[in-house]
Design a protein around this nucleic acid. Structure first.
Length: 682
DNA sequence: TTTTAGCCGT
C-alpha cells in the first residue's frame, strides 16, 4: 500500500475547538508581557498574628503574666505558655482565647483538651465567645463530639456560636446534622441568619454524597432564594460558595449563572468556575475560562492564577490528555515557582501519566525526593499501573511502605488496579490481604470491584462470584458491573444473567449494562435474547454513552465522535480508513470486523461502516495524516477500547510503522509493530 | 473580642 496519503498535511486546520488554542496562545503572550510577581508565603492559618502585641514594661519584663502567656503563644511555644499559665491565678478570657488559638494552630489536641478542662473548672464553659473558639478548635482536631459537647454546654447561644457549630458539621461531612442545626437555628428566638450561616448551610447540602442529589439541589435552590432575598448574593464569599456548590452537584448551568452575575470576582471565584468545568467533563470550557482569566489578570492583580487554579486547569488537561497544553501550564508553574506546592507537583505528575508521558511523571516523582507524600506515591503507582507496568507499580508500592509512608485506601485501589491490568492474581490477593489484615483498612465497594475484576478477567469467575457473596457490605453496581464485564470476556451467560438481575435494579438507566448482556447473548448465539435485551434498552429510551476520542496536535485538541458526519475532515478520514481496511483484509484473511458491538438493526454492510467510523479509528486516521512520520500518535477515548478498534490499531501500527498510544477509560494501550502492550488482555 | 470561599491520588 502506498503510504503517500499518510504523509503529514500542512493544511490541517480545525476550528471547531478553536477556543482552547488562541486563548492559550494569548496566555503565553500574556505571560511574557507580565513577568510573574514574587510569590507570597501562604497566609498563616493560625489567628495568632491578629492578636495584640503583649505589653512590655519599661524594664523589658512583661507587664503581667497574662501578657507573657500571650507572647509565648505567639511564638508558638505552647509548652512554656502552659507553664506560665499554671502560675496564673486570674487568667482572662483573652488569655484563654490565646491558648485555644495556639492549640488550634499547632494541632495540639492534648493541650487543647487541657485548656478546655480549665475553662470548665473556672465556670467559663457557658461563655459564648470561648465556646465558639473551642468549637473551632475541636473542628480542626476532627473531634466533632467534643465540639458538640461545647455547643450543648453553652448557656447563651449567639449567632457566632451557631455558625461555628454549623460550620464544624458541614466541613466534617455531616450534612444532615448540619442542616438540622440550621433548621433549629432558624427557629431560635433572637437569632437571625447572616451571610456566614448561609454559606455553611450551602456547604452542608453537598457533603453527603450518598444522598440523592436532587434533594441536595432542591435544598441549595431554596437557600439560594433566601440569599437573594437578603441581598447576600452580591457578597463574594457567598456567591463563590454558590458557584462551587452548584458545581459539585453538577449543575454547571446554575454555577455559570451565578458566576456571570457576579460584579466582583477574585482568583477564588475564577478557580471555582474552572474547577466546575474540569470536574464536570467540560474541559474545553475550563480552558476557555482559564484563557479569559488570564486576560482579566493583566488588569486585575487579584486574579492571577495560583496553585488552586493550576490544579484545576491541569485536571482539564488530563481529561483531554492535552499534554502539550499541559506543558505550557507546567512552564507557568516553573516561572511562578508553584512547583514548591506539593499538590501542584502531584497534579503535574498525574497529568503527564494520564497524557501518556510516564517518563515525565517519573522525573517529577524523582525530583520530589523527600517531599513525596502519600498522594505522590499513589499517583506514581497508579500511573505505572495504567501503563501496564504492574511489577513496577508493585515495586513502587513497596518502596513507599519502606519509606514509611502510610498507604491510603486509594493507594491500595491503585495497586490492585495494576495487578488487574496485568492479570497478576497471586500478587493481587496478597495486596488485598495486606490491606485488610496488615493495615486494617476496611475494603470499600471499589476494592471488592477491583478484586472481582482481577479474578473475573483472568477467567476465575467462580472465585469472583465468591468474593461477592463473602462481602461484608451490600454489593453495589460497581461490583456487579465488574462481574458482568468478566462474563462478557469469558462468555458466561448464566452468571451474567445473575449479575444483571441486580444491575438492572440498581442502575436501570445504565445503557452499558444492557449492551454487555446483549453482546453476551450474541456470542452465545441466543438471538431471541439479544432482541429481547435490545428492546429493553429501547423501552427505557436509553442511549448508550457516545464514544468520543481526542487527539492533540500542535497544542490543539481535536475531538471525534462515532460516525462523525459533521467533521470537516470526515471524507478524507473515511477514505483512509477504507484503504486501511482493504489492506487489512488482504493481509489478514482471518480478520472479520466484529460487527456485533453495533446495536442497530441494519444490514451487515452498514454495520461494518459504523464500526469503521468508531471515534477511535477516526482519531488514528487523523493522527496519521496530521503528525510527522516518527511521532507517537496519542489518543484518548472516553470508553473502553472495542475489540475491533484494538485489532485495527494493531494493524495500523505495523502498516504505517507508527507507535500509537491509546488511553481508554481504564488504561493505556501502546501499539507498536502490530502488537499491543496490553498483550490483548484488557 | 469572633467566623466564611476555590485544591492533589481511583
Amino acid at each position: 500500500m502506498s503510504l503517500s496519503s499518510l504523509h503529514p498535511s500542512t493544511s490541517a486546520v480545525d476550528s471547531r475547538f478553536s477556543c482552547a488554542h488562541p486563548l492559550l496562545q494569548f496566555h503565553i503572550f500574556n505571560l511574557n508581557q507580565n513577568p510573574s510577581p514574587r510569590i507570597r508565603p501562604p497566609p498563616c492559618s493560625c489567628k495568632l498574628s491578629s492578636l495584640q502585641s503583649p505589653v512590655l514594661s519599661k524594664s523589658g519584663e512583661f507587664a503581667n503574666n497574662n501578657h507573657k502567656i500571650q507572647y509565648l503563644c505567639k511564638q508558638g511555644n505552647i509548652k512554656l505558655a502552659f507553664q506560665a499559665f499554671s502560675n496564673e491565678p486570674n487568667p482572662t478570657i483573652r488569655t484563654y482565647e490565646t491558648l485555644i488559638l495556639a492549640c488550634s494552630a499547632q494541632n495540639a489536641a492534648v493541650y487543647g483538651r487541657i485548656i478546655h478542662r480549665y475553662i470548665v473548672q473556672d465556670g467559663l464553659d457557658g461563655d459564648c465567645f470561648l465556646s465558639t473558639r473551642l468549637i473551632d478548635m475541636y473542628s480542626r482536631f476532627d473531634a466533632l463530639e467534643d465540639a458538640r459537647r461545647v455547643f450543648d454546654a453553652s448557656r447563651e447561644k449567639d449567632v457566632y456560636l451557631w455558625n461555628a457549630f454549623l460550620r464544624a458539621l458541614a466541613i466534617a461531612g455531616k450534612g444532615e446534622e448540619a442542616l438540622e442545626i440550621y433548621g433549629r437555628m432558624g427557629q431560635s428566638v433572637g437569632i437571625e441568619f447572616d451571610s456566614f450561616s448561609y454559606s455553611y448551610a450551602l456547604k452542608a447540602c453537598v457533603v453527603p454524597l450518598s444522598q440523592s442529589s436532587t434533594l441536595s439541589f432542591e435544598r441549595v435552590r431554596k437557600i439560594h432564594g433566601y440569599i437573594i432575598r437578603h441581598g447576600y448574593q452580591s457578597l463574594i464569599y457567598v456567591a463563590t460558595t454558590l458557584v462551587d456548590v452548584y458545581a459539585k452537584l453538577s449543575h454547571v448551568g446554575y454555577a455559570r449563572m451565578v458566576f456571570d452575575g457576579m460584579l466582583e470576582k477574585n482568583v477564588v471565584t475564577w478557580s471555582a468556575m474552572i474547577g466546575c468545568y474540569a470536574k464536570n467533563e467540560m474541559e474545553f470550557e475550563a480552558l476557555r475560562v482559564f484563557g479569559e482569566m488570564m486576560t482579566a489578570s493583566s488588569i486585575d492583580r487579584n486574579i492571577i492564577p495560583n496553585s488552586v487554579t493550576i490544579i484545576s486547569i491541569l485536571q482539564a488537561c488530563s481529561g483531554l490528555s492535552a499534554m502539550e497544553i499541559g506543558k505550557v501550564i507546567h512552564a507557568y508553574v516553573l516561572r511562578r515557582r508553584l512547583d514548591s506546592v506539593i499538590s501542584v507537583s502531584n497534579t503535574l505528575l498525574s497529568m503527564y501519566a494520564k497524557s501518556g508521558n510516564l517518563d515525565m511523571s517519573r522525573r517529577i516523582f524523582d525530583q520530589l525526593g523527600d517531599r513525596r507524600d502519600v498522594i505522590s506515591w499513589t499517583a506514581m503507582v497508579s500511573g505505572l499501573g495504567m501503563h501496564g507496568h504492574a511489577s513496577g507499580a508493585i515495586d513502587c508500592f513497596h518502596q513507599m511502605l519502606r519509606a514509611g509512608v502510610f498507604p491510603s485506601p486509594i493507594t491500595f485501589l491503585s495497586v490492585l488496579g495494576a495487578c488487574s491490568h496485568a492479570g497478576l492474581i497471586k500478587e493481587g490477593k496478597e495486596i488485598f490481604e495486606l490491606m485488610t489484615n496488615g493495615y486494617h483498612i476496611i475494603p470499600g465497594p471499589e476494592h471488592y470491584a477491583s478484586m472481582v475484576d482481577l479474578l473475573g478477567r483472568a477467567g476465575r469467575l467462580d472465585e469472583a462470584a465468591n468474593i461477592i457473596s463473602a462481602m461484608r457490605i451490600e454489593p453495589g453496581p460497581t461490583v456487579w458491573g465488574s462481574l458482568l464485564g468478566a462474563c462478557r470476556i469469558h462468555r458466561n451467560v448464566e452468571l451474567a444473567e445473575r449479575a444483571c438481575v441486580r444491575l438492572f435494579k440498581l442502575e436501570p438507566t445504565n445503557a452499558g449494562n444492557y449492551m454487555l448482556l446483549s453482546n453476551i447473548y450474541f456470542d452465545a448465539g441466543m438471538w431471541e435474547k439479544v432482541a429481547e435485551t435490545k428492546s429493553l434498552l429501547a423501552a427505557h429510551a436509553l442511549q448508550k454513552m457516545a464514544g468520543c476520542s481526542f487527539i492533540e496536535v500542535r497544542r490543539r485538541v481535536y475531538s471525534f465522535v462515532s460516525v462523525d458526519e459533521a467533521n470537516p475532515h470526515i471524507e478524507q478520514l473515511n477514505a483512509l480508513l477504507l484503504q486501511i481496511m482493504v489492506e487489512m483484509k488482504r493481509e489478514m484473511p482471518s480478520y472479520t470486523p466484529q460487527t456485533n458491538v453495533v446495536m442497530y438493526d441494519v444490514e451487515e454492510e452498514v454495520k461494518e461502516r459504523i464500526l469503521l467510523g468508531h471515534s477511535e479509528k477516526l482519531a488514528v486516521a487523523f493522527g496519521l495524516i496530521n503528525t510527522n512520520a516518527g511521532d507517537v500518535i496519542r489518543i484518548t477515548k472516553n470508553l473502553r477500547l472495542c475489540e475491533d478498534c484494538h485489532s485495527v490499531t494493531k494493524f495500523v501500527s505495523k502498516l504505517a510503522n507508527r507507535e500509537i498510544l491509546v488511553r481508554d477509560v481504564n488504561r493505556f494501550h501502546r501499539f507498536r509493530d502490530g502488537v499491543c502492550s496490553c498483550g490483548d488482555y484488557w
